Amino acid sequence: AACLAVGLAPLLLLLAAPSRWLRAPLRLVWALGRLWPPPLTALLLLLVLQPGVVTGALALGFHNLGVLGRLLLESAADASPATEQALACAGSGPRLALLYGRLSGVARPYLAYAAYRSDVMLRESVVVSLVGATGLGSQLLESLSSFAWDQLLALVLVYALLTLLGEDLSDRWRARLLASG
């Protein structure tokens, strides 16, 4: 889900930026991604996909693609267009000028926020897996429904450890990205 959200947002922006008629549909897709919460997206995906990890990853990836896409779009709009214009005047194509002109300047903050969103996706995976009937969330639901308190405690501890590990890795990655910039 993190790879889908983090990697697809800049790629879609690069593909749609030179074409005025592609920008509006891209913004609409990103708005829908932000509008629909991951559990609802997972439920809709269950109409066409089997319950499983892929369904949950797509639901989380689509929602966070909307969040990261909007962030990237706003960051690129706020960045100075001088480098992009200079590259375009030097004969560079519009996508290459956007990539090296604007997106390279916002890459570090974007990746730092993407690390945070990856941590959020780890937390949301439990909720989405309750809907998608797989993963840690479904195990929690099964333990709760069968009153298996020892299993429930073990699962909550595993989830807490995963969350703390995810937070630590996310914090270190963000600090490293922002410190080197």
Results as ranks from 00 to 15, higher is better:
Y159L: 14
G52Y: 14
A115F: 07
G61A: 06
A112Q: 03
G137S: 12
V53K: 10
L72T: 11
L144S: 11
L4F: 14
S145N: 10
G105M: 06
N64I: 00
L72P: 08
L153Y: 13
L140M: 12
Q151I: 00
W149V: 14
L15Y: 03
P109Y: 07
L155Y: 02
L26A: 08
A90M: 14
L13P: 10
W30Q: 10
F147H: 13
M121S: 07
V106P: 05
L87G: 05
L12F: 09
L13M: 12
L4G: 07
A115Q: 02
L44T: 02
L96N: 03
Q85I: 14
A57I: 05
C3W: 03
L35I: 10
L43V: 08
S180F: 06
S104R: 15
A57T: 12
D171F: 08
A42Y: 05
A76T: 12
G91T: 09
A88K: 13
A42R: 07
W149S: 13
V127L: 12
V67E: 10
R102S: 07
Y110W: 08
G7L: 04
R117M: 13
R34W: 07
L46W: 12
L72I: 13
L161D: 09
T163H: 06
L162P: 00
R70Y: 12
S92Q: 09
S138L: 13
D171Q: 13
L14G: 07
L72D: 00
L122Q: 01
L136P: 09
L73K: 00
G181L: 13
L49V: 08
L178K: 04
A107W: 07
L164A: 15
Q151S: 12
Q151V: 01
L96H: 08
A16L: 08
S180C: 11
S146F: 01
W173D: 00
G52H: 10
L177H: 06
A148H: 14
R70C: 07
A57H: 08
L47W: 09
N64R: 00
V67S: 07
W30L: 15
L4R: 04
L68V: 04
M121D: 06
S170F: 00
L161E: 06
A57E: 15
D119R: 04
E74W: 10
S143T: 00
R123K: 01
A133G: 01
A57D: 10
W149M: 12
L157A: 15
L49I: 09
L65V: 02
M121V: 08
E74G: 01
A31R: 15
V128W: 07
G7K: 05
L60K: 11
Q139Y: 11
A76L: 12
A2V: 08
R176C: 06
A97H: 12
W21Y: 06
V67W: 15
S170T: 03
R20W: 05
V6D: 00
G137W: 00
A90T: 05
L164M: 09
G7P: 09
L165V: 11
D150W: 09
L47A: 14
